[in-house]
Nucleic acid binder design. Structure first.
Lengths: 109, 109
DNA sequence: TATTTACATCGCAATATTACGGTATTAAAT
DNA sequence: ATTTAATACCGTAATATTGCGATGTAAATA
């Protein structure tokens, strides 16, 4: 075990859950916030901002890249990471679709 | 290792990440959707809807209860789970605050 | 009272995640 | 040409998560 049974869920549920899972780590939230506020964009700046090893930051950046929310472009010997606006907006819609839906609270509890 | 270094992040970042982490599993998304749509509310109904063992469903329900998004009330020998509307709305705001913020896409990438 | 039903909890095995040191690569600087 | 700097990737140890069978518990029912 330790393996999620993805087969039994709808594609949408798996997709939404996997996005939320990637975002469900404080380092990745922090990285996104730094990038969004333009406090840092270069990997090495993030290493100094957060107190994590370079290998660890690189790994988190990779996961964020996997879901497409950021993209990196080589800038000399550094890499500049930015939000992919298109994907960010897709996610906004995805999350709004779920979290901003009407909750049917019948008086069963 | 394998232990997240929570000390180095802001409280808000840790909080948001931990909410997202709990929601980052398809079973928990599916459970929330069933409850929201009133397709199921009783634990045992969820066991039949999803194809997971009762122990597993119970564990996922527990995690959802931990973040307060659902609450359970004893109903004879069953337990009825419902969305906690107050908490749900708090989460909406929390998520909207993050995902609906303006993304500063400077032309660095 | 004995049995059944609906859950929660425990304990385990399998797998995943987190964090990091070490190393390879590539580009700039010397 | 060598060195330095920035980063990706690999392997590994520690820990967390997933899923489930087994067991315990409380309420309903026979």
């Amino acid at each position: 075990m330790g393996l999620t049974k993805t087969e039994i869920y709808k594609d949408e549920q798996n997709k939404l859950a996997s996005l939320l899972k990637v975002l469900g780590h404080p380092a990745r939230i922090a990285i996104l916030q730094y990038i969004i506020n333009q406090k840092a964009c270069i990997c090495n700046d993030l290493v100094e901002e957060l107190g994590l090893a370079q290998a660890t930051i690189s790994q988190h950046l990779k996961e964020l890249k996997t879901i497409g929310i950021i993209q990196g472009s080589i800038e000399g010997k550094s890499v500049c990471y930015c939000i992919d606006e298109k994907v960010w907006k897709q996610f906004q819609e995805e999350f709004n679709g779920f979290f901003n839906q009407d909750v049917n609270v019948k008086q069963c509890c």
